[in-house]
Design a protein around this nucleic acid. Structure first.
Lengths: 353, 353
DNA sequence: TTGTATGCGTTATCAA
DNA sequence: TTGATAACGCATACAA
C-alpha cells in the first residue's frame, strides 16, 4: 500500500500522477497515457473524459519519468564560452525563446574558454539525458574527440558561430568572410588606400574568415598585402590601443583600420583621439560585432552585426530538423547567416582623400 | 533477457549502468550504489573495487533516474525577465558558475517581463523536478500566488534583485536605497542644489528604493522635495532624452540629475550635448547600473555598480543554505549587497558652483 | 478500443 | 557489511 493515501475527490496538493487519474476514472494507466499523448487508438469519449479530469486536477506530467523511460528529455544543453558582452547573451536569448516555443527547456553551461570545462560540460549534459547539445567552441578547443561520444549516443549536436571547420558537422555560422569583405571594401570605397587589420586567433574559424574577407577586399582593389598592417592579438581594448600605437609607429601608417572585434577598434579610437588624430578624416575605423557601444562613441563606430538572435533561432531550428530526420543516418547541414554592415561616422568622410 | 547483451570485458559504448558494474564485480546493485554514494556502511575494500571499475568503465550516473527516484534533480531553475544588457547576463553568469561548483546545472527561463510567462515557467520548472528556483520578477508581477505552489511542494525558492517586498521570502537584493543615497549626496557635495531624478516604475522594489535614497539624500542636505524634478518613466534612452527636455523647460531647471538607470542618463547626456549645455559644469549627471558604456561616453558617466556576479553567487549560496536547512520549516533570510559608486567625469567639477 | 505487465536506472527499506 | 526487492511515473509490447 502507498504511504500517502490515494486521493479521490479530496483536494490534496502534491503532484497528480497518471495512476491517480486512472484510479479516479476507473480506467487503466495505458488509456490515460494514450489520451494525454494524443495517441491514435483511443475513443474520443474516453479521451475527453481523461483530458477533462486532467485539467480539473491540474495534472502535470513528470518530465523526469518520461525522460527516463524514453532515454531522452525535453532539455537542450547549450555550451558557450561565457555569458557576457553582447553576442552570447543575445544568442542564448534567441535559443531559449525558440526552444521554449518547441517545448524544450535550456540548460546553460559555460566552458570559460577552456576545453577541459567543455569536456565536463559534455558529460554533465549527457548524464542529464539532454535531447540535444548546441555548442560554440572554447578558444582552445582544437579537436573533435570529446564530441564523438555525443554523436555515438545519437544525441543531436549543432555548432554555432565558433566551429571546427573541415569536419562534417551541423553548424550555424555567420558569413564572417563576407562581412569582413564588405567592411573592408567600404573603407576602400571611402578612399582609404592603406587599410590595416586587427586580427584574432587564427585557429578560430571566425577570425580566420574575417582575415580572409579583408584580404579578398584588398585583392578586389588590386592592392598589395602588407603584412605589417596586420596585427594579431586577442583584440581586447588594451590590445587595440597597443596595436594602434604600433601602426602609427610605422614609417608609412595606415589610413584605415578594420578590426575583427569592436573592443579593439574602440581602443584604437581612444588612442587616436588622445593624440589628436581625426577619425575618420585622418584614419577611418570599422569593427565587428555591432556592440552596443558602437552607437555611442564619438564618432560612432562602423561595425558588422552578427545577427545574434537569428543565430540562436537557426541553431534551434537545425536541432529540430535533426530530431525529425532521426532515420536519416548522416543528415548534415550548414546554415550560413548573412551579416549586416552598419555604416557609421567612423568610416564616413566626404571623399577628400 | 535483455535486448543488448551484457558487456563483460567487452568494450561497448553506450552508458554503463550500476547493474553493469554489479554484474561485472559479482556484487549487488545495492553495494555498488553505496560505494558510489559514499554511504557509511560499506567495506573499504569493496568500495575501492567498485570505484576502480567505475572509473575504468567510465560509469556515468543517470541523473534522470536518480531524480525520479528522489523526486529532486540536480537542476536549478532560473527565471529572469530577459537575457540582455549587462545586469541579467552577468547575474546568470555568476549563478551558473556557483551552481556548477556545487554540482548543479542551471535551466534558464525568460519571463519576457510578463507574469503569464512567469507562471508557465514555474510549471515547466516544477515538472522538471528542479531542486530549487531562483527568480527575478517580471515588471508586471504584483502578487505572489503562483509562487505558493512552489513553496507547498517544498522546493527552495530564492528571489533576487526584483522581489515582492513585505512577504516573508528568501531574497538577495542590492541596497538600492543606499546606492541612490550615496550618489545623490555625491552630486550635492559637488555643489548641486537642484538635483532631479529619473525614476522607474514605483511598484518595483528597486526603483522605489532608489527614489527613497534620493529623497533621503535631499533631506540630509535640508533641501526641499520638488515633485516636478522627479520624472517617472521606463527609463529608456529615448525617455531620458524626453525627460531632460522636460526638465530644461522648467522655469528653474536642475543643476544635476540622478537617474535610476543608465540608459536614461545617457539619453540626457546626448540631449545636453546637442544643446551645448556642459556636463558636468552646467548640469552634473549620475546613473545606476554601471553599464559598460558609462566608461566610454564623453564625459564618462558616474554610476552605481550592482555587483552582478556577487548577486548570482549569493543567490546560489542562499539556495544551498535552504537545501541544508531542510528540517527548519521557516528558514527565512534576506541578503543585502552593498552597491559601489563609480565616480566619473559626468559628476565631477572643480567646485565653482 | 482498452488493459496487463514490464522496464528505464536509481535509491531506500528491510532482512540476512 | 551486504543483498534482495520494491518503488519513483511514465511508455510501450503484447494480449484481450
Amino acid at each position: 500500500m502507498n504511504s500517502r493515501n490515494k486521493k479521490t475527490a479530496e483536494v490534496s496538493d502534491g503532484p497528480v500522477s497518471m495512476a491517480d487519474l486512472a484510479k479516479e476514472l476507473g480506467v487503466s494507466m495505458t488509456t490515460v497515457s494514450r489520451a494525454l499523448s494524443d495517441h491514435y487508438s483511443i475513443g474520443p469519449a474516453t479521451k475527453q473524459k481523461v483530458l477533462k479530469l486532467a485539467k480539473k486536477l491540474n495534472y502535470q506530467p513528470n518530465q523526469m519519468a518520461a525522460a527516463l523511460r524514453k532515454g531522452k528529455s525535453k532539455l537542450i544543453g547549450v555550451i558557450v564560452p561565457y555569458i557576457e558582452g553582447r553576442f552570447f547573451p543575445s544568442v542564448v536569448h534567441g535559443i531559449e525563446t525558440a526552444a521554449r516555443k518547441a517545448g524544450f527547456s535550456v540548460i546553460i553551461c559555460q566552458s570559460n574558454e577552456d576545453v577541459a570545462h567543455e569536456r565536463k560540460n559534455i558529460e554533465t549534459l549527457l548524464n542529464a539525458q539532454v535531447a540535444g547539445i548546441l555548442v560554440s567552441l572554447s578558444r582552445n578547443t582544437r579537436d573533435f574527440k570529446h564530441f564523438e561520444k555525443v554523436q555515438k549516443r545519437g544525441v543531436p549536436l549543432v555548432f554555432f558561430d565558433r566551429i571546427l571547420e573541415g569536419d562534417n558537422v551541423n553548424a550555424v555560422v555567420l558569413n564572417d568572410r563576407e562581412g569582413a569583405y564588405q567592411t573592408t571594401r567600404h573603407l576602400l570605397e571611402q578612399g582609404c588606400r592603406r587599410v590595416a587589420h586587427f586580427a584574432g586567433l587564427q585557429h578560430l574559424n571566425i577570425y580566420k574568415n574575417r582575415r580572409q574577407g579583408y584580404l579578398d577586399a584588398l585583392r578586389s582593389f588590386d592592392l598589395p598585402l602588407d603584412e605589417e598592417l596586420i596585427i594579431y592579438s586577442d583584440m581586447t581594448l588594451e590590445q587595440g590601443v597597443a596595436g594602434m600605437k604600433q601602426l602609427l609607429a610605422l614609417p608609412n601608417p595606415p589610413d584605415g583600420v578594420f578590426a575583427a572585434g569592436d573592443s579593439s577598434i574602440l581602443g584604437a579610437l581612444q588612442l587616436l583621439k588622445s593624440r589628436g588624430i581625426r577619425v575618420p578624416q585622418d584614419i577611418a575605423l570599422a569593427g565587428f560585432s555591432n556592440e552596443g557601444f558602437t552607437a555611442i562613441t564619438e564618432p560612432m563606430l562602423t561595425s558588422v552585426d552578427q545577427r545574434c538572435e537569428e543565430m540562436g533561432q537557426a541553431t534551434v531550428r537545425l536541432f529540430m530538423e535533426l530530431v525529425e530526420a532521426k532515420g536519416t543516418p548522416f543528415y548534415q547541414r550548414q546554415v550560413v547567416l548573412q551579416p549586416q554592415l552598419f555604416i557609421r561616422e567612423s568610416s564616413l568622410h566626404s571623399g577628400k582623400r
